[in-house]
């Protein structure tokens, strides 16, 4: 099945009315999915495991459409965990084949990507994947990187702890190279080094199959996300489950919103204190007047922001370079 279902799946007037009603309340902008239950679905329906995974993919394509209809413009899915490499070789190969096929298919639908203006990002430790899978992923990411209307993040060879460590290495390297100081490290800067640096945090996390844990998925990013655990196997997930999850989000919205706002205020306060402390610790002479202190703090803030800007430019260009190189290699091998 294609990434873009040809006919509108189940878009009746009932759905349109429901959407209109739901949209009169807050709608999450970014939703994360843990698509759990493909294998149990296969067992339940006496299928091959592989078939369960294929059914799971079809459901994803359908769900993306439902999300766009309702105003959810960014979706992040947990496709393959680093832990999943522990599964039988047969199943891992099957999942790699699924990825190979689907990303190749996506590249055959270039005009549809452009038409829908979809940006596809793949997040994870891609080096763990077979080279040809890396290449086809890089091609998709590179091709769609400037699209803005809708974003799909596919977490592949991903775990959150691994992601956090990758960000830590990035920052430690920045300190080592002298681009930033260790005191410049903050929550905000760490977020800019995570794989999800270009996305806002998910507003809503949906996990299917009734499990009630995060399983090493977006641990940092979902600190203030509304959690929705749905007791249905992923291939059986329906538009009504999605509506239910949105209602759940709306019910929890006020308390979560106020927690996020106060956290943002805390961050700003902490940063100001940090800047102040850094200036205090560097000035030894005690004959500075208050006015010059405040101007020095101001200067320090400007310097810090400049350092961070340069560092982030370095980080991003490294990432772009990685994908560019893979794309180039594919081209040369392909010819």
């Amino acid at each position: 099945m294609s990434w873009f279902p040809q006919k509108k799946t189940g878009q009746s007037w009932v759905h349109r009315v429901c959407q209109k009603i739901l949209k009169s309340g807050p709608i999450p902008k970014h939703v994360a999915f843990i698509m759990d239950g493909n294998r149990r679905f296969a067992v339940k329906n006496h299928m091959e495991r592989a078939e369960g995974h294929f059914k799971g993919f079809d459901k994803l394509a359908e769900t993306l459409e439902w999300c766009l209809d309702i105003g959810i413009t960014e979706v992040t899915v947990y496709a393959f965990s680093i832990e999943n490499f522990k599964r039988s070789k047969e199943e891992v190969d099957c999942l790699m084949e699924l990825a190979r096929q689907k990303f190749t298919r996506l590249m055959q639908e270039k005009e549809l990507i452009q038409k829908h203006e979809v940006c596809v990002r793949v997040l994870g430790n891609l080096n763990l994947l077979p080279l040809d899978v890396q290449e086809v992923i890089a091609e998709c990411v590179h091709f769609s990187k400037d699209n803005k209307r809708a974003v799909l993040n596919v977490c592949f060879a991903y775990t959150s702890r691994d992601e956090i460590c990758a960000a830590m290495r990035e920052l430690a390297e920045g300190v080592q190279l002298g681009l930033i100081r260790d005191s410049d490290v903050s929550e905000e800067l760490m977020e800019k080094c995570l794989y999800t640096s270009q996305s806002p945090h998910p507003d809503l996390l949906i996990r299917t199959s009734g499990e009630v844990r995060l399983s090493d998925f977006l641990l940092w990013q979902t600190s203030y996300s509304c959690l929705s655990f749905v007791d249905v196997l992923w291939p059986e997930f329906s538009i009504w489950h999605l509506y239910g999850a949105v209602l759940h989000y709306q019910r929890n919205y006020p308390s979560i919103k106020s927690a996020i706002d106060s956290d943002m205020a805390d961050r700003i306060r902490r940063q100001r204190e940090q800047d102040y402390e850094c200036v205090i610790s560097t000035c030894d002479s005690s004959d500075q007047s208050t006015s010059s202190l405040s101007s020095r703090v101001h200067q320090y803030t400007l310097d810090r922001e400049a350092r961070i800007k340069q560092f982030l430019h370095h980080v991003n260009s490294k990432r772009l370079h990685y994908f560019q190189e893979l794309v180039n290699r594919k081209k040369t091998v392909g010819v």
Binding site: S160, R161, I164, L219, W220, T222, S223, Y224, S225, C226, L227, S228, H248, N252, S255, I256, A259, D263
Partner: peptide
Amino acid sequence: GECLFGFQPW
């Protein structure tokens, strides 16, 4: 609020 409210993410 069905949310972890910043509980230790790691």
